[in-house]
Design a protein around this nucleic acid. Structure first.
Lengths: 349, 349
DNA sequence: TTGTACGCGTTATCAC
DNA sequence: GTGATAACGCGTACAA
């Protein structure tokens, strides 16, 4: 164990530890010459300060933690990059923490707050179904990003950035309806889902209501209740679509609640000799890059990830600076028309 | 700041701090009743021990750190999941750390070693072009996973798990050659690249040599030297393919050095009215899920990610347990034939 | 079985 | 401008 500490540096430089500390932390009250001497010695010995000790002592550090649930979701990767660079550009440090699907993000958050003395938290992904009590225990500012707020909680105690999943889903469904589709199958998460799956279902229902078209409940294909892992995956979309096809139900379009599921669905249809969009139209949700590069390119609702990422940090720093009011920013999605959909003549439903 | 410490718990329970510590850390020498009392109080107050202080004090902790360079690479997501569960199943803790493309992973590693007193490290991704000296500073066992070993370094000082990029690339190229292709374009990283890009280029060259076919150097399309970010992306594959098409060079197949680049290439070809595989065959590298779900599905070399992930942890624990010999495990890839390639009649080169 | 006291490496607060 | 020294929160000898 090459345990090289600040004391060793101090001894070798013939100065006190506090002087070394001053050199490290860019304190003003230090002789430039001694400072240089110390810094040289530090880089010579490749000394690295122990952050545990630092965190223990420091009353505060300029760092922001990003807690991400669902690291495989491509939509987060762009966001992380932007969030990271925004944070660094403000001379704050950035730490990323993966939260398991079965972990409680508020507990993880509490730990980090105490240990690292962070200034703020970004929660990326996951479903927030925590009690008000739990949220109030978070003693630093935080922003829920791309997270559907739990409407049963007092909205004033947290800030959130997201799209309106209900509205966007409704919009996507209406796009299909306006293109003559009436029998629209939906590939869904679990029936018990209370996150985006549920919200997008509500939007889907709303669209039918708005257009006075009866909704066929049996065209909603739910994921198996006992399946775990990533339900928004290509694999799951593929499976659900196969199931749908096998059921011989009558439909002209499929609304998959994620682009990845849409890909799986198109693959399944293609394998069965069903052409997209000539026979069946397919739409997704998210606006991933792959939606553009897929063949056929996929009609989808694009979430404005860059804007959301930037706004997340903007709001977080607003809170950190002390303008105490929580805000819920809702961003608008954009329908990106791809080659996976077509307008059809109206037929009887 | 709800700074609740072990002292508070001790005071409220009317015991000493060491008793609380014993309760927390499951020490045997404690009265079960006092222990229960303390644990109840802890959960009541939602007390969370400060890990900084723990790390500072402890001489060792059972934790493994995974340093990942290139978090957007889908191939790592499966590996992380497996690595994490393997680590947890051994009752070790797991921490994931994202390393920026411009950061030095050995420095990050040294910091963590000192701060968290970790037992081992997994390096996932990145190019290892560090000096022997630097590697020797890592005082805990580590395994380079999916990383092309730097051959200029004494192989005995580190363990590595990877595929043989040269051999696999050669195999992929030979597959094309054996299917009658002679003019095979390659979509590459930067010309200066010393990582997998370079290795896969060598394999490509080797294949031509093996078959006594002259290699057309001008069919190698390099990424722009001044481009940054992810060169293995769909976007970059798309750009390079467009450039290739515009150059009106004569070729019958494209070898993209990643599946994502292959997708971009197929999209570009399709847009230009060039059919895959009827007019041009395309192959990728990695064996991502999307290669199977793309239309046409993509012929690729599948890396055995699950096996590699498991072996990584196996080797790491072997080192931790003290069987000091470093090993370099090379895994074999598998060619997965997709719909993106076809055999062609031999024509003059 | 339990409590006291010390030290982990660092920073902040004082004197000098 | 600089150097002792007391915390930070915890684990652990050691004493009780």
């Amino acid at each position: 164990m090459g345990k090289y500490t600040i004391k060793d540096i101090a001894r070798e430089c013939g100065v006190g530890v506090s002087t070394v500390s001053r050199a490290i932390n860019n304190h003003p009250d230090i002789n430039p010459q001694t400072k240089q001497l110390i810094l040289d010695k530090i880089s010579e010995r490749q000394y690295i300060p122990n952050n545990s000790a630092r965190n223990l002592k420091k009353t505060e550090t300029n760092t922001i933690a990003v807690l991400i649930k669902g690291i495989a979701n491509p939509i987060f990767h762009q966001m992380i990059d932007i969030i990271q660079s925004e944070i660094l550009s403000k001379d704050y440090a950035f730490i990323l923490k993966k939260v398991g699907f079965d972990e409680d993000e508020t507990v993880v958050a509490s730990e980090i707050i105490r240990e690292q003395k962070i200034k703020g938290i970004v929660f990326l992904g996951g479903i927030f179904t925590h009690t008000e009590e739990r949220l109030k225990e978070l003693t630093v500012p935080y922003v829920l990003s791309t997270i559907a707020p739990n409407t049963s909680i007092d909205g004033n105690i947290y800030s959130a950035i997201s799209v309106d999943d209900v509205a966007e889903s409704c919009r996507m469904t209406e796009y299909l309806i306006e293109n003559g589709h009436k029998r629209i199958a939906m590939l869904q998460a679990k029936k018990e889902d209370l996150g985006v799956g549920y919200l997008r279902l509500k939007g889907y229902q709303q669209a039918f209501k708005n257009h006075n078209i009866p909704m066929k409940r049996n065209l909603i294909i739910y994921s198996d209740s006992k399946s775990d892992g990533d339900l928004f995956s290509m694999e799951n979309g593929y499976k659900l679509a196969k199931k749908l096809i096998a059921s011989h139900k009558d439909f002209t379009a499929i609304f998959a609640i994620s682009d990845r599921m849409a890909i799986g669905a198109i693959k399944a249809l293609t394998e069965e000799g069903i052409r997209v969009p000539q026979d069946i139209s397919v739409v997704g949700f998210d606006g991933l890059d792959i939606a553009r590069y897929y063949i056929p390119s996929i009609t989808t609702v694009k979430q404005p990830v860059e804007d959301m990422a930037r706004e997340t940090i903007y709001q977080l720093f607003r809170l950190i600076k002390g303008s105490g009011v929580n805000k819920h920013m809702v961003f608008e999605g954009t329908i990106v028309e791809g080659e996976s959909t077509r307008a059809i003549k109206k037929r009887g439903s």
